[in-house]
């Protein structure tokens, strides 16, 4: 008997998966966001969200946290990635692994350990909630910056760098005019990897600030755990909207990268 699978049939499992775990949950969220507790259509959650200074403040604070954390991670991660990618030493891979290895440990456990270490060196979350939270966020998201940057930097076109210096760039100009533009796709994807997860992070602020700092993720969680399904769902929609916006904004850069890449070869 001949048994052959067609492409269509191969798609079925993924299709089921998508429906079950992506489409249906989104529909649920949409349903809860625009209904009241009795299940009737209502814009109550929307109005409640935009009139509550408390919730807007949380949103703004989360955005600020995300922006600052993204910038810090990029500032620190970029040089590390550059050094790792450009030096020929054999231990490079080991160093990359050292940065990446903590990611293999469960995130909640790791954050608990971070809290203990911080308390031990005197940066107790109760007294220094902001510092402790930032350290935690930075520590957790740095690898997500280094990895994409490292991989784009491995692909840096040496000839372009040489061309820049051949055409009159000094070392600093070589960086600003050739190396940095080449790494922009990496920077964008690194920023994406940090910005949104920071916004929705829940365990890190919760554990490290001992509940003193509430980010958007915490507030969604609080909503669900307090049985305010409608308002929490609406906040989740806001979250989704921000994800979509940030993807739209960055889409141009990532597409450009692919074009440039293919034309070079």
């Amino acid at each position: 008997m001949k048994f052959s699978l067609q492409r269509k049939q191969l798609c079925i499992p993924y299709f089921i998966f998508l429906i079950l775990f992506v489409v249906i949950p989104i529909l649920f969220i949409l349903f809860y966001a625009f209904t009241d507790s009795a299940g009737n259509f209502s814009l109550y959650s929307l109005i409640a969200f935009f009139t509550s200074t408390n919730k807007i403040n949380v949103l703004i604070q989360s955005l600020l946290f995300s922006v600052i954390n993204t910038i810090i991670c990029l500032l620190v991660g970029y040089p590390i990635a550059y050094i790792l990618a450009s030096s020929k030493a054999k231990f490079n891979y080991v160093v990359v692994m050292l940065f990446v290895m903590p990611m293999w440990i469960n995130f909640v456990l790791r954050t608990g350990a971070t809290r203990d270490v911080l308390t031990w060196i005197g940066l107790n979350g109760g007294q220094h909630p902001y510092i402790a939270t930032f350290i935690g966020l930075f520590y957790n998201y740095l690898p997500f910056v280094i990895l994409p940057l490292y991989s784009t930097m491995l692909k840096l076109d040496k000839a372009q760098i040489e061309a820049a210096s051949d055409l009159g760039c000094n070392r600093f100009q070589v960086f600003t005019k050739s190396i940095f533009p080449q790494t922009i796709p990496g920077v964008v994807s690194a920023a994406q990897m940090v910005f949104m997860p920071t916004m929705s992070s829940y365990v890190i602020p919760e554990t490290l600030s001992e509940g003193k700092i509430i980010l958007f993720g915490n507030s969604i969680y609080l909503g669900f755990s307090n049985n305010q399904w409608n308002s929490a769902s609406f906040m989740a929609i806001i979250m989704l909207a921000i994800v979509c916006i940030s993807m739209l904004v960055t889409r141009n850069y990532t597409e450009k990268d692919q074009e440039g890449g293919s034309s070079r070869w």
Binding site: A159, Q160, A163, P181, K256, G260, S263, R264
Partner: peptide, 10 residues
């Protein structure tokens, strides 16, 4: 003039 031109794609 470089082998693979090394033009700046940006």
């Amino acid at each position: 003039v470089f082998q693979r031109y090394a033009l700046f794609p940006h």
